[in-house]
Design a protein around this nucleic acid. Sequence first.
DNA 1: CCTACCGATCGGTAGG
DNA 2: CCTACCGATCGGTAGG
Lengths: 200, 200
Amino acid sequence: MARIIIDKNSSRKEVILTKAASLFREKGYKAASMRDLAESVGVEAASLYNHIKSKTELLHEICFGVANRFMHKMEEVEGEKISPIEKIEALIRFHIDEMILHYEEVYVMDREWKHLSDPYLSNFQNQRRMYRKRFAAIIEQGISLKNIKPIDASTAVLILLHAIGGIESWHRSTQKISAEALTANMISILIGGIAASAKG
Amino acid sequence: MARIIIDKNSSRKEVILTKAASLFREKGYKAASMRDLAESVGVEAASLYNHIKSKTELLHEICFGVANRFMHKMEEVEGEKISPIEKIEALIRFHIDEMILHYEEVYVMDREWKHLSDPYLSNFQNQRRMYRKRFAAIIEQGISLKNIKPIDASTAVLILLHAIGGIESWHRSTQKISAEALTANMISILIGGIAASAKG
DNA sequence: CCTACCGATCGGTAGG
DNA sequence: CCTACCGATCGGTAGG
């Protein structure tokens, strides 16, 4: 019985988090009110506070939930015995999968993180800086091995991450091209560029 | 004398617009208050309304100011007798120049347009859709001529635009690499990809 | 989980 | 360009 109550509570909070991510994406964190959120959950605004501490808590749970998954994947990929290019491809694929499976959360992390407040804000910025640094290090390895052009690695990281994060149609189930085709296109363009190669 | 007053008024409004772009970028449109703006201009909040009609007017003047420049450039490039690849390179260069010269405004247009209200909101979305369609058409031409790989053109457009729009360091004068080197890197990566070509 | 409500802050106006 | 102020809305709390 206690178990049932706990399960009920935790699933209630998960519903609130999901609806919050959706609202924050649609209207932006500041423009989305707790009354909006309450309505979409189906309770009065005051009732939300039986499950959460504050609006800000929702934002940082969304942001760190996503950020932690990316960090975990980075650790995993770094440990694999594959080439730098293969590591980059694995990371790109993971980013795309995250966009497909958790579009709202990833979008909110990407565009609304600046509304975090300060223990969390600096923490988030540090974590993001570390992630990009480690991503850039993989590119540098590829450059050393001459599998990657001698480009500025941190510029390349920003291009890759924003190119993926900017695709807006991930969440639509009915899209002009399938997720697989989109993924193949992304990888092809980001790794190989848009120019036709001499080899055909 | 009347001329002097007009000049004074218009320069006053320009100051307000510039400060607004800066604040909207830093805090986001919703989180930036008119009292913040007044302080950064150096007047009381109520005084702003002698120069502007509303907060929303500031946002749409910023958004359409930038959007119109992009549209104008698109028209110009379409009319030039150069190859599709050269057209794309010209457009990419223009986007990069806009980021360097008008970082705050471009950033606000990119990330805060959703706070426009409705005659302007739909107008903006239409204009953006048209811009992307015309950009994609150039890529399609390149594919027909076999200068560009057979990729999905609208995916490629989103990748190009977001890759450029995502670079955050445009506005810093002291950067690790120069604007020219950054531009060269961007063009190289976006057109040629990151993989080293067989030709070396 | 709700009713009732609070202090703070918002965009904007009146009147000078 | 300022002082004074308004109605609306915000995140959140008290108390049941």
